[in-house]
Nucleic acid binder design. Structure first.
Length: 429
RNA sequence: GCGGGCGUCGCCAAGUGGUUAAGGCAGCGGCUUGUGGCGCCGCUAUUCGGGGGUUCGAAUCCCCUCGCUCGCCCCA
């Protein structure tokens, strides 16, 4: 076979699977609208530089997972690996980064060059939410709550929320200095990966999975001890409020998250039933990003939810689609045009109408209608067409009991009555 | 980038050295040109991911390669 194949780590989403996607997207968007969050769309393609500066050159995402290439003008471009940097760029560029209180969301494909596995692809989809211009503690709580509520609305089970604080700039750099010093002294006790990170991305070492290194780190200086009273206060309030709101969480002092731009609150939501790629949602505060990227000092907080993982976790009830309401069986030159007119008329009601375009035998068309589980059927042959009428009847399991009704093509009132009482009745409830 | 598993029709698969590669589902055609659930009949892989080798003979053995998949790392 030398047919074309999709690239590794990408997938085709076929009609049957998309029913679930559409339902998931619908639930998410409805919840966002109700929470007064507005959509923003930025390009999938950006200058590579944007992510290097925004996310951080030392991060894994930038240093080894970016899809980059030179375009015809020799510019280095990248397929976005995440959304926050793009949103920040867009706000600065359009002169609205300082506009207070912007709640934004986006949903779309992201790209990371990694080995694919369950719940992980090279092209994957994220929902991102960013609250820009918010610095109050309540905005942290609001955004965590929003993430939590969306996941619950989607019916996802076994959710675990982990939170931590990374402090402000000063806290972090004080800690980092002390930490790096300590790391250098104890370098030989660390695993190789961690050793490499000492200069590139020391905070990341806290998040190591290496058991040996974890043990060694027990004696290292702790970020927590470097927190200013202001930072500490903030963190305490968040925990307190989450308890009041009855959102269960656990503290994870080693949660630092992969991207450089986080400050203060960092959080992650995992689901036990997902296996090794357990993270469903990750987020945190990033008060420095916008200023670092050339905007004025603007606090912000956000999160991202991985849609593929959500799809894996959400239940079968989201896979149900609407059946065809009316299948129009038609054959013959006079009948065909009449059938087309009729299908257009019927689609003005909220009905799914399938017009048979095959022109094959009636019995074939009936079989097709049956296979589609159409709720009702209209038959127009030339016999009917010449008399300007058609036949309609219900088309379900009790087929023998369903009486046909003949309706004149001009008799809209009779048609509407039939449709109302047979197809739309339960739908309107 | 590093490990493990797997690759026979659109899907699920049997076959593990002998001359025709089971079967099921789906699809198509017919029994039944204008009325559907069932049933019956027929059709649908010169070929077993690709290449090379061993052999009189390979889907079956060996080598290489590609792909998929799961895990590590990291993340959504």
């Amino acid at each position: 076979m030398n047919n074309f194949k999709n690239l590794r780590g990408t997938v085709d989403l076929l009609p049957d699977q998309l029913i679930k996607w559409q339902n998931v997207e619908k639930i998410i968007i409805e919840q966002l609208i109700r929470s007064s969050v507005k959509e923003i769309r930025t390009p999938i393609l950006e200058m590579t530089e944007l992510f290097m500066r925004g996310i951080g050159e030392g991060t894994d995402v930038v240093s080894k997972e970016m899809y980059t290439f030179l375009d015809k003008g020799e510019r280095s471009c990248a397929l976005r690996p995440e959304g926050t940097a793009s949103v920040a760029r867009a706000l600065i560029q359009n002169g609205i980064s300082t506009k207070p209180f912007q709640k934004l969301w986006y949903m779309g494909p992201m790209f990371r060059y990694e080995r694919p596995q369950a719940g992980r692809q090279r092209q994957f989809h994220q929902l991102g939410v960013e609250f820009v211009g918010y610095k109050s503690v309540r905005s942290d709580i609001e955004i965590i709550t929003l993430a939590w509520d969306i996941l619950e609305k989607l019916g996802i089970k076994e959710l675990n929320l982990e939170i931590n604080t990374l402090g402000n700039n000063v806290d972090r750099s004080n800690f980092q200095k002390a930490f790096v010093k300590w790391l250098e002294v104890n370098k030989n006790f660390l695993d190789l990966d961690s050793q490499k990170r000492i200069n590139k991305n020391p905070l990341r070492i806290l998040d190591t999975k290496n058991v040996q290194t974890k043990k060694v780190l027990d004696d290292a200086p702790r970020l927590f001890d470097f927190l200013s009273t202001e930072s500490l206060e903030r963190y305490l309030i968040i925990k307190e409020k989450l308890k009041l709101l009855k959102i269960p969480f656990i503290e994870n002092k080693n949660l630092v998250r992969g991207l450089d731009y986080y400050t203060h609150t960092a959080f992650e939501i995992t689901s036990g039933s997902l296996g090794s790629q357990a993270t469903v949602c990750g987020g945190g505060r990033y008060d420095n990003l916008i200023s670092q990227m050339g905007g004025t000092e603007t606090p912000a907080i956000g999160f991202a939810i991985g849609l593929e993982r959500i799809i894996l976790l959400s239940g079968k009830e989201l896979e149900e689609s609407r059946d065809t309401d009316i299948y129009i069986v038609n054959k013959g030159i006079h009948a065909e045009i009449l059938a087309m007119e009729l299908s257009r008329k019927l689609r003005n009601y909220d009905l799914i109408v399938e017009l048979d375009l095959s022109g094959t035998s009636f019995s074939k068309q009936f079989k097709k209608a049956n296979k589609l589980k159409s709720k009702s059927i209209i038959v127009i042959g030339d016999d009917e067409a010449l008399k300007n009428e058609f036949v309609i009847r219900l088309f379900n399991n009790e087929y023998s009991k369903n009486k046909e009704e003949t309706i004149s093509i001009k008799d809209n009132i009779k048609l509407e009555k039939w449709v109302q009482s047979n197809l739309l009745l339960d739908k309107n409830l």
